[in-house]
């Protein structure tokens, strides 16, 4: 048995043991997200526009992660719509910044990987860089949106007549609770993944100036920052989406479930 299969089995079994049906759902959403990501790469290799492929993949991935992850119906729905708005905000930040910073493609540190490879690719790597940045934040957006909307749904359950203004304050309060730990999830997630690169910088004695202008380094830090920005943006946007939803439900009580 391959290591990936074995680890996958261990994960599945522990998920089921720890939380039953929810565990199965969590495993399926991971499996699905892998499939979606791989499929997106294949489509880009077949010269479909990387940005278009990424946006379609993102919408599907957000839907699957949020609907398979969350628990009750209307808070997951709010989380999903909010995450789509965050996606739009994120694209509006990423596109100009990547044009400016030009971190696409490979750096001199990648020479070993590139040896013997053709660089006649015919794929716009600036767009590939944008796609990579967008895709890497999807999990973080989904998680933050679920956390905020689930927290707000719980408050609404306890205080069904809460004023919208107070609901807004509550959203921000939940946001303040999650921001510290979420930042650390992102920080360690990214820095753990790029430990080797930093060790490279240290052992080849890069100067601070070289590091701060290095294509790979800047690209990595930008990805961390983009995901931080998207998590921050998720907090007010999810709260607003929930307020809108509650206002509609109160105006048309018959239509709501």
């Amino acid at each position: 048995m391959g290591t990936i299969t074995a680890l996958g089995l261990v994960l599945l079994v522990s998920m089921v043991l720890v939380s039953g049906k929810q565990g199965v759902q969590a495993f399926l959403s991971l499996l699905f997200n892998f499939g979606a990501l791989f499929f997106a790469i294949v489509l880009m290799a077949f010269h479909l526009n990387p940005i278009v492929v990424t946006l379609v993949t993102s919408i599907i991935v957000l839907a699957m992660t949020i609907f398979l992850g969350g628990s009750d119906d209307y808070s997951t729905e709010v989380a999903f719509y909010a995450s789509l708005i965050v996606l739009v905000v994120l694209v509006l930040v990423i596109v100009p910044v990547e044009h400016w910073a030009q971190i696409q493609g490979f750096g001199q540190e990648d020479s070993e990987d590139l040896e013997g490879m053709s660089n006649v690719l015919g794929i716009n790597y600036l767009q590939v860089a944008m796609a990579t940045a967008i895709l890497s934040t999807l999990g973080a957006i989904a998680e933050a949106a679920i956390a905020i909307s689930a927290g707000l749904a719980e408050i609404l359950e306890q205080h069904p007549k809460i004023e919208l203004k107070n609901l807004q304050g509550a959203g921000l309060r939940i946001g303040k609770q999650i921001i510290g730990t979420t930042f650390n999830t992102l920080f360690f997630g990214f820095f753990g993944g790029f430990l080797a690169l930093f060790i490279w910088f240290a052992s080849v004695h890069y100067s601070l100036g070289e590091i701060l202008n290095d294509r790979i380094f800047v690209g990595q830090i930008l990805m961390v920052l983009f995901s931080m920005i998207s998590v921050i943006a998720t907090i007010p946007l999810t709260t607003s989406a929930m307020m809108l939803r509650v206002r509609r439900m109160r105006e048309n009580p018959n239509k709501s479930e």
């Binding site: 720890v18 997200n33 892998f34 949020i66 992850g69 628990s71 999990g139 989904a142």
Partner: peptide
């Protein structure tokens, strides 16, 4: 059970 799924996806991406 509710938070583990989304969290694993954060790292996966």
């Amino acid at each position: 059970g509710e938070i583990m799924g989304p969290l694993i996806n954060v790292l996966f991406f």
